[in-house]
Design a protein around this nucleic acid. Structure first.
Length: 340
DNA sequence: CATCAGGCCCTCA
DNA sequence: TGAGGGCCTGAT
């Protein structure tokens, strides 16, 4: 297998660490060449005839687990590299490298939303609304970080409510390592051999059926455990996770809002980061602050009004506008300065 | 020991 | 239809 190069503008580190609730950031090693290397276990479900693999776990007949590695030189955001390896357990002679490579490439392209034309977004939005110029400048290369697993996104989004980023990422990581599908890899088994020989386990997020009887409170989710359990019941019996892909945004919002623990903000996070509904505008306290400052002359506005404004003003780019405004509001120091 | 952190749910006008 | 209180938990 050989490395693949993607020629797309992206800031991998920023995208990974911007707190999007699709998933916790991937395992990262910054190597001695200054590259950031991110690793995660992905499950390929877009190969043909997966039943050719007779040594897969019965639970995972429909997915081929692969450890993906994406690497970027932080000084060159115009491209990044992808590498991958199968676990020894899944060594197969049913698929060519070419088939698997294509499937991994597609999955990475989906997760980092590479089909989205970022340069065009910058150009059009600045022309239209110069209030976004500072955010775009501050967040150059930031992209949506789309879920590798929609159920994981739903649980981590519920977990994020009234919570800190460090805490919800810790909780979801713990749920994975406690009960998720597990494979071990040696990290220097990649073609460039640039990393130390670390052996490490990687995990998938547990399936809906696997999580039902587990003690989630032991992972620090607190009172949100009730929400998660009740949502799991609904997802088992009433709401089909995959059916939401076929809905309009409004219908999807209404449907996902039926889940306990899912209010307007969490619903929009799930729809944006989990399903890629680009017209969603998740409105939390940071978005309220920055929208109030930029568009309402500093006057305090409700979350609902913030959401209505964002969706109306940014239309099909609302999701990206939110992503940029959110990160700019939190990290630029602007809001801290305003408090004083 | 308070207070706070990327809201939601419930109650009560 | 909206305002306000309570809430697991870990960090400071």
């Amino acid at each position: 297998m050989s490395k693949l190069k993607f020629n797309s503008l992206i800031n991998l580190k920023l995208t990974q660490e911007s707190g999007q609730t699709s998933q916790a950031p991937w395992f990262c090693i910054d190597d001695d060449k200054g590259f950031s290397n991110y690793y995660e276990l992905l499950f390929l479900n877009n190969l043909n005839n997966l039943d050719k693999l007779d040594n897969l776990d019965s639970d995972n007949l429909n997915n081929l687990p692969v450890l993906a590695k994406v690497s970027q030189n932080p000084n060159d955001l115009s491209c990044f590299e992808l590498d991958y390896q199968l676990s020894d357990f899944e060594c197969n002679d049913s698929y060519s490298d070419k088939e698997i490579t294509a499937a991994v490439r597609d999955e990475i392209s989906k997760i980092f939303n590479l089909d989205f034309d970022l340069e065009n977004f910058y150009k059009n939005l600045i022309d239209e609304d110069d209030k976004l110029a500072d955010s775009i400048d501050f967040c150059n290369g930031l992209r949506l970080f789309i879920a590798r697993d929609k159920f994981e996104c739903i649980i981590s989004s519920i977990c994020s409510a009234n919570n800190s980023i460090t805490r919800w990422t810790k909780s979801t990581s713990q749920i994975k390592s406690n009960w998720g599908f597990n494979r071990e890899f040696i990290l220097n088994n990649f073609s460039n051999n640039s990393n130390p020989g670390i052996t490490k386990s990687f995990y998938g997020f547990p399936k809906l059926s696997e999580l039902a009887d587990k003690d989630l409170k032991s992972c620090g989710v607190g009172y949100r455990e009730d929400y998660m359990k009740k949502s799991e019941d609904l997802l088992l019996n009433e709401i089909d996770i995959d059916e939401i892909d076929n809905m309009s945004y409004d219908e999807a919002f209404e449907t996902i809002s039926k889940l306990p623990g899912v209010g307007p903000k969490v619903a929009d996070c799930i729809l944006l980061y989990g399903y890629g509904f680009m017209e969603a505008f998740p409105s939390d306290v940071w978005i309220k602050r920055i929208v109030s400052y930029l568009y309402f002359d500093g006057k305090e506005i409700s979350a609902k009004k913030t959401r209505d404004f964002g969706m109306e003003h940014f239309g099909e780019n609302a999701g990206y506008a939110q992503l940029y405004l959110f990160h700019y509001a939190r990290k630029s120091g602007l809001m801290d300065k305003l408090k004083k």
